Computed example of a mutant assay.
Amino acid sequence: MARYRFETDEHEMFRETLRKFLAKEAVPHFEDWERNRLIPTAFWKKLGEMGFLCPQVEEAYGGLGLDFSYGVIIGEEMERVGAGLTGVGLHNDIVVPYIEAYGTEEQKQQWLPGCISGDYITGVAMTEPGTGSDLANIRTTAIRDGEHFVVNGQKTFITNGINGNLFLVVVKTDPQSQPKHRGISLLMIEERTPGFSKGRKLDKVGMHSQDTAELYFEDCRVPADNLIGEEGKGFTYLMEKLQQERLIVAIAAQTASEDMLEMTLDYVKSRQAFGRSIGSFQNTQFKLAEVATKIELGKAFLESLIEDHMAGKDVVTKVSMAKYWITETARDIATECMQLHGGYGYMEEYKIARRFRDIPVASIYAGTNEVMKMIIAKNLGLK
């Protein structure tokens, strides 16, 4: 895998250290985690001890003060082990940045050290049984009652839902607000809060080791001090931060594609049919030439996009393009690579089978690809 233009020797050392760590602490156990449908919290603690949780957080709170480029490396190396480790990227690069950007000094001191150590495992609770990408129409309410908000509602498809103990919950603090999005706020809710309970661990088609759950709030009294940012500004905060989430999804899908090409090249070179390797057949060569070309295009696009994002440029349109195109390309690549594995590709003992199961959801979460196309069209001036 060629390194990015922005990677320095320090980045390379960081990647190598992480790769060695994962080779010891994750790779030998990953299939068991997949079968058990859960990654042990002890692994999170080890990540924290090594500095791989929230390295971007300021040193004052226990972080390393690194930039987003190190998050890119962590996301890629986690994905290379398996998509079930996506919850680490969600914790590092999606949830914790809300605390960093909009939290008070007291909130940062309260939660950031634990997020870095692995004592806190975070999740973001947006989706509801009747509401996915249409965030303005969420129904979970948080009504002010003195020094507390009383929260009632249900969330579903919550990544880190079982292991998580600190959730960024999207709520309606003003259910009558018009337009609706102005009534949305963000609350941090800890697992031990009375009135907060977890439902079943959801049984998914893929990403088996990544715990996903339902969350319930019944007259759940949350301290008003847990409000992130200003009341009623939640939708604005989400729109600002969703771009990095979508970029993280695109990076993971790109890494999955690179991994699938690598394993398929190895397979077709060694697998014999009709007296010669499968890789010597023109159909195989053409298929993999097409896959390799798509991967190079995706990599070049991502590289420039990551650089623009780190420079603080407006990347809403390009992030939407990357999220939609790279995830759909990865899904196509999974199909092609499984086909080239023949019957073995359908066997669970081959990693391509897991990739084939894991990749489709990337087109759905963090905003469906249909929503991505709506954003692109709108920004092209098509209303």
Score class of each variant (00 low, 15 high):
131 T>A: 11
131 T>V: 15
131 T>D: 08
131 T>R: 12
131 T>C: 13
132 G>M: 14
132 G>C: 04
132 G>R: 07
133 S>L: 03
133 S>I: 07
133 S>R: 07
133 S>Y: 14
134 D>T: 11
134 D>G: 02
135 L>Y: 11
135 L>F: 11
135 L>V: 15
135 L>I: 14
136 A>P: 04
136 A>H: 07
136 A>K: 13
136 A>M: 08
137 N>Y: 15
137 N>W: 15
138 I>Q: 03
139 R>Q: 15
139 R>I: 12
139 R>L: 14
140 T>R: 02
140 T>K: 04
140 T>Y: 05
140 T>S: 12
140 T>P: 03
140 T>C: 14
141 T>I: 15
142 A>F: 13
142 A>C: 11
143 I>V: 15
143 I>N: 12
143 I>F: 11
143 I>E: 13
144 R>S: 10
144 R>G: 05
144 R>I: 10
144 R>M: 09
145 D>T: 10
145 D>V: 09
146 G>E: 15
146 G>I: 14
146 G>M: 13
146 G>R: 10
147 E>D: 15
147 E>Q: 15
147 E>W: 03
147 E>M: 12
147 E>C: 02
147 E>I: 10
148 H>A: 11
148 H>S: 14
148 H>T: 15
148 H>Q: 14
148 H>E: 15
149 F>A: 07
150 V>H: 07
150 V>T: 13
150 V>N: 10
151 V>F: 13
151 V>T: 14
151 V>N: 09
151 V>E: 13
152 N>L: 08
152 N>A: 06
152 N>W: 03
153 G>Y: 05
153 G>P: 02
154 Q>L: 03
154 Q>R: 05
155 K>A: 04
155 K>V: 05
155 K>G: 01
155 K>E: 04
156 T>D: 01
156 T>W: 00
157 F>P: 00
157 F>S: 02
157 F>G: 00
158 I>N: 04
158 I>P: 00
159 T>P: 03
159 T>Y: 08
159 T>A: 12
160 N>L: 08
161 G>R: 00
161 G>W: 01
162 I>Y: 00
163 N>I: 05
163 N>P: 02
164 G>F: 00
164 G>D: 08
164 G>H: 04
164 G>S: 07
165 N>C: 06
165 N>L: 07
165 N>G: 03
166 L>M: 12
166 L>F: 01
166 L>H: 01
167 F>Q: 01
167 F>M: 09
168 L>C: 14
168 L>S: 10
168 L>N: 09
168 L>Y: 12
169 V>C: 03
169 V>I: 13
169 V>G: 05
169 V>E: 04
169 V>R: 03
171 V>Y: 06
171 V>D: 04
171 V>Q: 02
171 V>K: 00
172 K>F: 05
172 K>W: 01
172 K>A: 02
173 T>I: 02
173 T>E: 04
173 T>W: 03
173 T>Y: 02
173 T>K: 00
174 D>V: 05
174 D>C: 03
174 D>A: 06
175 P>Q: 06
176 Q>T: 13
176 Q>F: 08
176 Q>M: 10
176 Q>C: 00
177 S>I: 08
178 Q>C: 01
178 Q>L: 05
178 Q>G: 00
179 P>F: 09
179 P>H: 07
179 P>R: 12
180 K>C: 04
180 K>H: 09
181 H>G: 01
181 H>Q: 15
181 H>D: 14
181 H>N: 11
